[in-house]
């Protein structure tokens, strides 16, 4: 059954336990960072940083808000990166969990094209062109554990479970949160398996919090391949 993560940013305190536990579980090296005048670090996702809590200070309706957005792959229901790659040795969806997974074969793909196809600007490439991103801790999930970021979260901002359960939780929380934040919304809930709840206009949180109209999606050739379906897969068009 498809799994989902529900991220309630209204109760995220940016302790960044998720960011560290992600590195720990995946044994990812630290980046050499420097403080550039913000608590956020690293400054962006990278080949060795799959999860990043974005931190922004915004004045909204005359009130200062410090907004936290634990950014990661959305594990799209219908993933443009997967369709664009069109190579299941490189990018595939685990039918058991719905996780979109990248392999070392991504090195053979046109990295910038894959990155460009992502409406949320998530995948990152290594120097040799190999791509990496959040894998929903698929190995943990298959062994009955929750993703590391979810296990670490102290407040319940990160939640994990069956898609239907997470959607229901997201909708219920949205209804409650609306009393305090009338502009609260879920971000592309029908299209993604990592569903965010935000209190304000998503543009305040991240440039790519919602599927960006200016980028991503699929090209004509990809659309054609999709149309041809299994036949195209066989032919490796």
């Amino acid at each position: 059954m498809t799994k989902s993560i529900f991220v309630d940013t209204t109760i995220c305190t940016a302790c960044r336990g998720c960011q560290v536990s992600c590195k720990q579980w995946h044994d990812l090296p630290a980046e050499k960072t420097k403080n550039v005048g913000s608590h956020q670090n690293p400054q962006d996702l990278s080949f060795m940083t799959y999860k990043l809590v974005r931190m922004r200070e915004e004045i909204i309706d005359n009130h200062l808000q410090w907004l936290f957005f634990p950014d990661q792959c959305r594990h799209c229901v219908d993933a443009p990166c997967l369709a664009t790659a069109f190579n299941e040795d490189a990018i595939y969806q685990d039918p058991a969990t719905g996780a979109i997974l990248y392999t070392q074969v991504t090195k053979k793909l046109a990295a910038d094209e894959i990155i460009g196809s992502c409406p949320y600007n998530i995948p990152r490439k290594a120097e040799d062109g190999t791509l990496a991103k959040c894998d929903m801790c698929n190995d943990r999930v298959h062994n009955g554990l929750k993703p590391a970021c979810v296990t670490t979260c102290p407040t319940g901002a990160m939640n994990f479970g069956d898609r239907e359960e997470m959607l229901a939780m997201a909708k219920s929380r949205l209804a409650t949160v609306k009393a305090k934040f009338p502009k609260a919304m879920l971000l592309n809930p029908d299209e993604v398996n990592v569903i965010y709840l935000v209190a304000f206009d998503p543009k305040y949180y991240s440039d790519y919090a919602v599927a960006s109209s200016g980028r991503g999606g699929i090209s004509r050739s990809v659309a054609l391949r999709k149309m041809m379906g299994p036949l195209a897969k066989m032919m490796r068009v």
Partner: peptide
């Protein structure tokens, strides 16, 4: 611990935009 130093690599001083302006200090300097 590298993962933690990655998050907070430097000792910092937090100040208001007003004070920074007064002292001609740029963010991250």
């Amino acid at each position: 611990q590298e993962w933690l130093l990655e998050l907070q690599p430097n000792v910092f001083v937090e100040m208001s935009e007003e004070l920074a302006k007064l002292k001609g200090i740029a963010n991250g300097e």
